[in-house]
């Protein structure tokens, strides 16, 4: 466990709280992609299957896993009940089956082992790398975002970006290297690069997030 890993996990945790806070404070889920949230729930459910047999291995990991699964399920529940009037299926239209299909194909082609758990783990890693696309696509269609929504996206993107120095650290200092997670994590971070740029040049300078 190194500083980058802890900061990455905290950033992930913070992103979820910001999302819930966004819905609570604006009483709306406008600007949030339900498709992306459903993909994340799929990611957590397929990756954290091991919670049933490694529950006591690391209380830290197990509690984070539970928090990610439950909070994302709760977010989806809120979006589909309390805040459903703000859902806009006309804007949230990214073809998610291609993402699920692509991740499934990569998982079958490159798992570490051919076991159900390892193939699902690999699937979850690839799916996570592209799960933000419906959200970014939606952002592009609306052309602007509430500031709190951009903080959510920044924290969510920063989480995987912080895992990259963590992987480098582990590779050089512990001899641990995880090629699937690393390649997918780099792709995931690259997908955020445009967003990071606009967040840095606009939101951090007190301006509204608007696409050029």
């Amino acid at each position: 466990m190194n500083l980058f890993r802890i900061l990455g996990d905290l950033s992930h945790l913070v992103s979820i709280f910001i999302l819930l806070q966004k819905m609570r404070s604006t009483r709306s889920c406008a600007g949030i992609s339900l498709r992306t949230q459903i993909l994340y729930l799929m990611v957590y459910c397929t990756r954290y299957l091991d919670i049933f047999w490694t529950f006591n291995a690391s209380l830290y990991n197990s509690s984070m896993k539970l928090v990610f699964i439950l909070s994302t399920a709760y977010t989806i529940y809120l979006m589909r009940t309390v805040y459903k009037t703000a859902l806009d299926p006309q804007i949230d239209t990214f073809a998610t089956y291609y993402l699920v299909g692509g991740a499934g194909l990569l998982a079958v082609l490159f798992p570490y082992k051919y076991t159900v758990y390892e193939v699902l783990w690999s699937f979850s890693i690839w799916l996570e790398s592209v799960a933000i696309l419906p959200q970014l696509f939606m952002l592009q269609r609306t052309g602007e975002a509430e500031t709190i929504t951009t903080h959510y996206l920044f924290a969510l993107g920063a989480y995987r970006a912080l895992y990259i120095p963590n992987w480098l650290y582990r590779w050089f200092l512990e001899g641990h290297f995880d090629p699937i997670a690393t390649v997918a994590g780099i792709i995931q971070t690259l997908l955020y690069s445009d967003f990071f740029y606009i967040y840095y040049t606009k939101v951090l300078k007190g301006k509204k997030f608007e696409l050029p």
């Binding site: 990756r47 690391s58 995880d178 997670a181």
Partner: peptide, 10 residues
């Protein structure tokens, strides 16, 4: 270093 079984990251 102790090698953890399975995947030790989130």
């Amino acid at each position: 270093a102790k090698k953890a079984a399975g995947h030790d990251e989130l």
